[in-house]
Design a protein around this nucleic acid. Structure first.
Lengths: 222, 222
DNA sequence: TAGATTGTTAATCGATTAACAATC
DNA sequence: TAGATTGTTAATCGATTAACAATC
């Protein structure tokens, strides 16, 4: 479900299932916790049990990308962290922009977790001219009309979008033509992007709905 | 024609795949857009193409829960919306609390999308006593020590958590013993909950990592 | 060496797609 | 009736788990 027009072959030789990549991020997170706790090595069994997965699945997932473990020993945490970062592309630093400096947008600007994983929000955009030139959380706000210029100047490849629903698709079109390669969409709307541009959607209400379903269902069972 | 509990196994817990339930939320979202656009009916083909899914998958997904369509006609949008809401449990209103009135927490308090889907944040909690008694976005902030009392008084079943990493598991334990049945976790940490309590995790940095992976990979392919 | 744990192949399980009779 | 579209069964495809030789 990563691209809009999946009927063609935009993800052509995907070969790595999407679920595997998202578990990779979870492994990374747990490994970083293990390192913080002073652990040098771990095993597929340990990693799996931290996340509720089988050991076989952990090994199989990693095997998509190479051989990172040592038979009889396990995985060296620091080494595996750096391998996973290489795979995810977070061994490099990414410049990210934000469109929509509202409620949610400002929270994203202040969110510490991005920087820790290699993402830096370097510019924000809004159509409200009264915000232009201001800074929030140390990030300069530009008018949306300056998008293409700033993207080029600051070498920005990823965008986060937190705008009103009606604005979503028009903003996406502008992001795409400014050369943005990936969009993280917080607007509860299905956006469409051309082949070659990636998107990820985060719909907070949908997550709550999933929770509601799970709670109701587990209630019925009793 | 459609309804409820026929045989012993009808909408029993023949474990509907998680992926199906999350697509259900997407169908709901698209249906609500269609209704806003004045459409009365739709089809599995239309719904599918809006989301990049096959028509067969749409029909199969819905078939887990009943017969909601009309051969030769399609689905009546309003009717299907109400059926899906019933399934997800959002035909009723849910009282939700928030723990952690920081950056992200305050944005969640102000997020309009929850209310539109039947969720109402009725109380917020923090350990910072200087916040106690204040209101943010019209929501009263309590000290965490008042958790159990307020949960009981206001009949709260769901919680959102946006606290520092170290606080996450202790807060979870308090939520559980206060009787909370589902937790939406914004802290980038794996929390553990007892059987009978549900959780959903939203890790913003992980979503960006998925995007980064997709962008890097599609770059390599060319 | 004995014990631990990997990477990988084969077996199992589950989810998606295709096809079509039934229906409006 | 002819055309459209459902619900569902069967066929295909993909992902997870089990098992084990290879390795340290």
């Amino acid at each position: 479900m990563s691209t809009s027009s999946d009927q063609s072959n935009s993800d052509a030789q995907d070969s790595v299932p999407k679920a595997v990549v998202s578990r990779l991020s979870l492994y990374l997170r747990e490994l970083q916790h293990l390192i913080r706790d002073g652990r040098d090595t771990t095993s597929s069994t340990q990693l799996g049990s931290m996340l509720g997965l089988t050991d076989a699945q952990v090994r199989k997932d990693l095997a998509y990308f190479g051989q990172f473990g040592y038979p009889g020993v396990g995985y060296r945490c620091a080494e595996l962290v750096s391998e996973i970062k290489k795979i995810l592309g977070t061994d490099q630093r990414w410049h990210v922009l934000l469109v929509g400096v509202g409620n949610l947008g400002r929270a994203l600007l202040g969110y510490k977790g991005f920087g820790q994983q290699g993402f830096r929000i370097v510019a924000a955009f809004d159509t409200d001219r009264s915000k232009s030139g201001k800074e929030f959380e140390g990030v300069r706000v530009y008018h949306l009309d300056d998008l293409a210029r700033v993207v080029a100047e600051q070498n920005i490849r990823l965008a986060m979008m937190a705008v009103p629903s009606e604005a979503a698709q028009p903003v996406v079109d502008r992001l795409v033509s400014a050369g943005i390669q990936g969009i993280m969409n917080f607007v509860p709307v299905t956006i469409s992007v051309p082949d070659g541009v990636r998107k990820v959607g985060v719909d907070l209400a949908i997550e709550l709905e999933q929770l509601s379903y799970a709670v109701v269902k587990s209630g019925e069972k009793v």
